[in-house]
Each structure stands twice: as structure tokens, then as C-alpha cells.
Simulated scan of single mutants.
Amino acid sequence: MRRISVIATAAAMATAVTGLAGGQASASVQSLGTCVTHYGNTVAWMDCKGGTQASWVRLGYNCGIPPATVNRLTQWYVLAAGGKGTVSARCALPMNRAWYNVRVY
């Protein structure tokens, strides 16, 4: 049975700022959230920190006993600009690795 929990995903968004400087348009630099993944025994989790714009994040993990392992993904969660969050997942079998995916909100 798989259990997923999410902590502290907020609902704020940053907007891109575009201005004119000397007749040329310049856009502010936008950054997505970043995450650090961990796994051990039968649990995988990621701790995420928001960038300057809101992001979608999800946790990927591999569980099972080699060679019979399975890659799984959590659903996508919103990570607010400057926010923090944790996503975790549990397998009945041992975890082999974990990774994260980030995309623009």
C-alpha cells in the first residue's frame, strides 16, 4: 500500500517583470524550485524550496528487490515561490532510489 503526505505547499505565485531599458526589453531572471531527495528502507521523500516563481514538483522512486523493481511517481504538487514543502511515499518493498521532477506552474 502506498501512502503520500504533503506538508506546506502554499498558494502564492511570482510574476515575471518585463521592462524597457534603452529601447530594449529585458526580463527578470526567474528560477524554479529545487528539491533534495532521500530514501531508506521502505520510504522515499524530498524536501523542496521554492524559487522565484511557483513550480510543480513530484517525487519519483524505485522500489522492489532487483531485478524485479518498479518506478513510481507521486502526483504533481504546487510549490509556491519562496515556499518550502516535503513529499513522501512508502513502499511495502525496499526503496532503491529516489528523484524529483520540477516544471513551471
Rank of each mutant, 00 (worst) to 15 (best):
M1K: 10
R2T: 03
R3M: 12
I4K: 01
I4F: 10
S5R: 09
I7C: 06
I7M: 11
I7N: 06
A10G: 15
A14Q: 05
A16L: 13
V17L: 12
G19F: 03
G19L: 12
L20T: 05
L20A: 04
A21V: 14
G22L: 15
G23E: 03
A25G: 12
A27F: 04
A27W: 00
V29R: 02
Q30E: 14
Q30S: 13
Q30C: 11
S31M: 05
S31N: 04
C35E: 02
V36W: 06
T37K: 04
T37E: 05
H38D: 06
Y39F: 15
N41Y: 13
T42G: 07
T42Q: 11
V43I: 12
V43H: 03
W45H: 07
M46L: 15
M46W: 05
M46C: 11
D47E: 08
K49I: 14
T52M: 03
A54C: 14
S55T: 00
S55I: 01
W56N: 04
V57M: 14
V57P: 00
R58Q: 10
L59W: 00
N62E: 09
G64N: 03
I65F: 04
P66N: 06
P67Y: 00
A68K: 13
A68P: 04
A68M: 13
A68R: 12
V70C: 05
N71K: 00
L73Y: 10
L73M: 09
L73V: 04
Q75N: 14
Q75W: 08
W76T: 08
W76I: 08
V78L: 15
A81P: 01
K84F: 07
K84R: 12
T86S: 13
V87Y: 07
V87D: 08
V87C: 13
S88L: 11
A89C: 12
A89K: 00
A89Y: 09
R90I: 14
A92C: 12
P94Y: 07
N96K: 01
N96P: 00
N96Q: 11
R97F: 13
W99Q: 02
W99C: 04
V102C: 12
R103S: 07
R103Y: 03
R103N: 03
R103M: 07
V104P: 08
Y105N: 11
Y105P: 15
